[in-house]
Design a protein around this nucleic acid. Sequence first.
DNA 1: TGTCTCTAGCGCCCCCTGCTGGA
DNA 2: TCCAGCAGGGGGCGCTAGAGACA
Length: 157
Amino acid sequence: IMSSLNRHMKTHSDEKPHVCHLCLKAFRTVTLLRNHVNTHTGTRPYKCSDCEMAFVTSGELARHRRYKHTLEKPFKCSMCKYSSVEASKLKRHIRSHTGERPYNCYLCSYASKDTYKLKRHMVTHSVLFQAWLILHSMCLTVREGLKKKKRQCNIGM
DNA sequence: TGTCTCTAGCGCCCCCTGCTGGA
DNA sequence: TCCAGCAGGGGGCGCTAGAGACA
């Protein structure tokens, strides 16, 4: 019990002795640091047994498996038939029942139910909107090119 | 005591769909 | 009527943090 308490107390301190040598970000535990470093190196030790996907953490793999393979959706809406793999998705869904819009645009009366919608909306205010569109279409072009290259590689193998 | 593992949570991006206003 | 722009709803993954389990 005391060791659990001691460990919990550490979460209230800013002590993060484990530092990433690649980006200098600090972490509380070695495991967190290792996971973080894996995101730099692309190391994904948790491989899905049913497809080609691989992940940095076991949690990500478990979630992927629920989304793609087991189709298990433990979070159920009490007001309708909607169910979700993740609690946060259910939370977002419930806002469509309650009408809650916590994310306000500071330039107009628009308010959004989630952060990304607000971000997307903000683009319509921006003088850089056109630039964004150009960049976005360039990104899509590059992505399509990479996909094509990947497909060619797979055919080649 | 340190590490692994699970769960929770926030964030980002994307897709599909429906509505609306202008051509 | 068609089309572009925009917002709503939701799927899927990236990453971090806290806490239980275990060697």
